[in-house]
Nucleic acid binder design. Sequence first.
DNA 1: GTGGTCTAGACCACT
DNA 2: GTGGTCTAGACCACA
Lengths: 129, 129, 129, 129
Amino acid sequence: MFQVDLKGRKSIYEQVVDNLRDLILSGALREDEKLPSVRELSKSLTVNPNTVQKAYRELERQQYVYTVAGLGTFVEKAADRPQDAELRRAGVELLRRGVRELRLCGMENTEIRGVFRALLLENASKGKS
Amino acid sequence: MFQVDLKGRKSIYEQVVDNLRDLILSGALREDEKLPSVRELSKSLTVNPNTVQKAYRELERQQYVYTVAGLGTFVEKAADRPQDAELRRAGVELLRRGVRELRLCGMENTEIRGVFRALLLENASKGKS
Amino acid sequence: MFQVDLKGRKSIYEQVVDNLRDLILSGALREDEKLPSVRELSKSLTVNPNTVQKAYRELERQQYVYTVAGLGTFVEKAADRPQDAELRRAGVELLRRGVRELRLCGMENTEIRGVFRALLLENASKGKS
Amino acid sequence: MFQVDLKGRKSIYEQVVDNLRDLILSGALREDEKLPSVRELSKSLTVNPNTVQKAYRELERQQYVYTVAGLGTFVEKAADRPQDAELRRAGVELLRRGVRELRLCGMENTEIRGVFRALLLENASKGKS
DNA sequence: GTGGTCTAGACCACT
DNA sequence: GTGGTCTAGACCACA
């Protein structure tokens, strides 16, 4: 499904949250589709079940999934997901910080704009894969 | 000189590193200029001296400053700072992640481009202040 | 595991770094093997945990170990350790300085060569123990 | 006469001691020759006079120089310098550590011997300059 | 005065 | 349990 990187500072549960959220937002996991059970996923990632559990709880809190006791965890309907605005703010913030860092390197607006344009095309093709 | 935010997840010493690095890159601190002493800065930030020193050591490791024991800590010459390329990569990576997140929100290229253009102008005015 | 010398000019954390590095390079600690926890080692050396942690951070920076928060610190794979060349340069530099000092004492090449030959045999036997 | 490096961990007074000692041992400063005054040397090195003073005291302690109040500091006669054995031990120790580091890099005796032989020739030519 | 090291003890998030 | 950060206060060598 995906991999986690034990080294590196990002905590494992955070990686699991991000990966699953991306799979949901990208449509790879469809509405009401069942996520792998905590045990399955923890085994396939060779990670502590508690860690996966924590990730699932966090996704539930953010309303990306819902849990039915005894059955499993499922993808929430897009309509019931009110916090796209939050994600959008996060994305804008990343762009802002990126622009700031590039400016600190001494890059001018025209240069930065060039980098950005290239990025937009590059990711577009990635998005299709 | 600047402020640190005691709450928030970014650790204090990290904030000190980032702030000083920005002051150096922006030219507010000039080559061979003396940074405030560990004790001075720690007092003005109302922070423990060890925390400031940790930040200074990190800046030295990244070759933004150099240390003369008994005299103080000074801004490294730009020529002896070989890793601007690294910072540039970091900036591009931030842009990439930003684009990715916005796309996950369902935004189209044209929309993203609009956000970005606004951002470029906004920061430009900040830069002048 | 090893001992530290509280007197002597070499700082404690530096001794810890050097000792652990040697254990890793000599193969006494194998790839992905867990190092003793910060608290364990600090207790067994009767040293402050902060001191040991400082050593661990330095080893991580030099890519001899990697850290998984909440799990422990582990020996990095040799393949992911790109700076053996650096250690080699350091060794050659030590030899160079040694030759220089002996020459300043008035020793001739033949004499120095004799000392060196003896040294090579002596350390070889140490290596086997 | 020589330069000191403000960056780098070696303390300034230590650099002054080492440089002067080398000049004496190499014969560049002859027996009973007068060293520059503390003020002169401190000015030419752009260094605090106290630092040079400390270096001179240390050289005196090691019996490389002697001081005549009101006249200056002079190179001690080689005959009155009893501690060549100490310097010799230091040199041997450097060689020992060099061999050890190179072995930790995985080098075999034959390889190390090759490096050493090259070093002996290289420094010989430097010695003539 | 400067930076560098160390101890003692605390709190936090993650596994 | 693990590592990571922080505070408080101490001592040292160097300039």
